[in-house]
Amino acid sequence: MKKKARKKTDNKLAAVLLFPSIALILLLVAYPMVSNFQISFFEQSINPNIDPTFIGFENYTAILTDAEFLKSLGITFLYTFLTVVGSTIVGLAVAIFFNRPFMFRKISRALIIASYVAPTISLVFAWKYMFNNNYGIINYLTVDVLHLFDQAPLWFDRPTSSFILVVLFAIWRYFPYAFISFLAILQTIDNTLYEAAEIDGASAWQKFKVVTLPAIMPVLIIVATLRAIWQFYTFEDVFLLTNQVNTLGIYLYQTAFAFNDLGKAASISVILFLILFAVILITRKRVNANGNG
């Protein structure tokens, strides 16, 4: 009887405490999701005075047969794969490097995070200047000093070199995220495990494989999954750097706000939703089990 009464008060209090968060999420996430689904069946422009026309699945067939979309999908998968692998490996390597006591450890750790927390716009300006075709320091170093290239690559104006540029940018910008997560878990590994492996004559690589990797596995899965999702929907990093790499985020944004076709943009969103949900279904159990939500 007493227990029941206690439960009741919890329900009420929880409802009050969670109300602002849930109301906002319902209004600005759940409702838009439904609305988005609805819009995807209409031909609709940005101008609110032009009435939408119902066109069934036409937006979907238009997208799925659009060579530009399929190309964009391929580019996005490749971009996601390379940036996730790159930023995770660099982050892990730097974390292992940092996993020991040394002078300036705290300040070094804080400095490494700078690229991750600074606004994209500032970082993009710096990169645009560094990689400038005429007077950028990168072309000066790679062409005039190190002679890596015969001619300065036009970093912002060619699809391939621009793709390399946005991948490098993302690895540089996001490796600190992996770095922080790995450093935290590395500090929890018991040193005696390494000592035991050493007595057994294990090499550095074997120690990594037998001791480090199993210990960091849960974090590795979370880091790679979340990074993959965020990279898959990447928008401003690429959008602000170059107009030569058409990721899905940019394809969606331009369909809506440059080509003025909200219906088609909404159906691109729906397709992306489906991909996201597939990923969540596959990963949720594992990530949840590791206490990240």
Partner: peptide
Amino acid sequence: INSSFYVVYMFSGLLLIVPLFKI
């Protein structure tokens, strides 16, 4: 509620940009 928050956490604003713009 916990799993819905988790789903929203993984969301990108980009996915909802069209309906948000309309709303």
